[in-house]
Amino acid sequence: MNDGTPLLHRDDPSRDPLGGHVKVTREDWLAQARDTLVRDGVAQVKVLALASRMEVSRSSFYWYFRNRDDLLQALLEEWEARNTASIATQCARPASNITEGVCNFFLCFVDGARFDSGLDFAVREWARRDEVLRARVDAADAARLKAVTAMFAAHGFDPREADARARILYFMQLGYHALDVREPIAERLDRIGPYLKGFTGQEPDAMAMRRFLDTVDSLGIA
């Protein structure tokens, strides 16, 4: 029951609204900061502005973070844990052949729970003006490429070809998002067979491809 105090809604609609006697959590501050970073850029990630958006006192911020820099570092840790770790995990998943391996990689980019493309490019835009962060982004790209290369190598590709195909696959996928390509997901998935052949140099395994499409369908994306 509400006593007239404004309700503050978290980003997750399944969560209870925040009432006057419910503290804003660290997760709430991070969610608001992440949304602002993606929408407006790092310069607009300000404690007072975030507090105003959530209709709370900024004093609660200091229960969870020392200062703004501490919040920004937490955002970067989330980016690494969500995006770089997700690619590494997907590429290391057991796969019966390279078709299934590449489909595991693709799941990062069709399921927002595995990879946040908006956050990824917001961090990259931020890094254009921050050389220290640029080095961190370069290290993340290197780690992701290492994982994709290892996936190809695990399916019999020699080191040189595994490296080249990993770069083609990874940079194409990032470019797809950077260009903000807008097409129906059904149209994109209709090209999955030719894409797989192009990326692997092999005829795609029909059963692995079917399992991938079924997984996408179960996510309610198509």
Rank of each mutant, 00 (worst) to 15 (best):
R15E: 00
R15Q: 10
R15G: 03
D16N: 02
P17D: 07
P17A: 08
L18V: 14
L18P: 01
L18G: 14
L18F: 04
L18N: 01
G19F: 03
G19H: 08
G20R: 01
G20I: 01
G20T: 05
H21W: 11
K23Q: 11
K23E: 06
K23T: 09
R26Y: 04
W29E: 03
W29P: 03
L30A: 03
A31D: 05
A31P: 08
Q32V: 12
A33V: 05
R34Y: 00
R34F: 00
D35S: 12
D35F: 11
T36D: 08
L37G: 08
V38T: 12
G41T: 06
G41L: 06
V42C: 14
V42S: 15
A43P: 01
V45C: 08
K46V: 12
L48Q: 15
L48I: 13
L48V: 15
A49H: 15
A49G: 10
A51L: 02
A51Y: 11
S52D: 15
S52R: 15
M54E: 11
E55R: 13
V56K: 04
S57V: 00
S57E: 07
R58P: 15
S59A: 13
S59F: 01
S59V: 09
S60A: 06
F61W: 07
Y62M: 12
Y62W: 01
W63A: 12
Y64L: 04
Y64P: 10
F65L: 01
F65N: 00
F65C: 03
R66E: 15
R68L: 02
D69T: 13
L71Q: 00
L71M: 05
L71S: 05
L71Y: 10
L72D: 07
Q73D: 15
Q73L: 11
Q73C: 00
A74C: 11
L75W: 05
L75G: 01
L76H: 06
E78M: 14
N83P: 12
N83R: 03
T84Y: 13
A85Q: 15
A85F: 09
A85P: 07
I87N: 07
I87M: 08
A88W: 11
T89F: 15
Q90N: 14
A92Q: 12
R93N: 09
A95V: 08
S96Y: 03
I98D: 04
E100Y: 03
G101P: 14
G101A: 06
F105P: 11
L107Y: 08
C108Q: 01
C108M: 05
F109T: 02
G112T: 00
A113S: 14
A113L: 14
A113Q: 11
D116T: 07
D116V: 04
S117M: 13
S117T: 13
L119M: 06
D120L: 08
F121N: 07
A122V: 02
A122M: 02
V123C: 06
V123I: 14
R124A: 05
W126D: 09
R128I: 07
D130H: 00
E131C: 00
V132L: 07
V132D: 05
V132Y: 04
L133N: 00
R134A: 13
A135R: 06
R136S: 09
A139N: 03
A140V: 09
A140D: 09
D141A: 08
D141G: 04
D141M: 07
A142T: 13
A142C: 10
A142N: 07
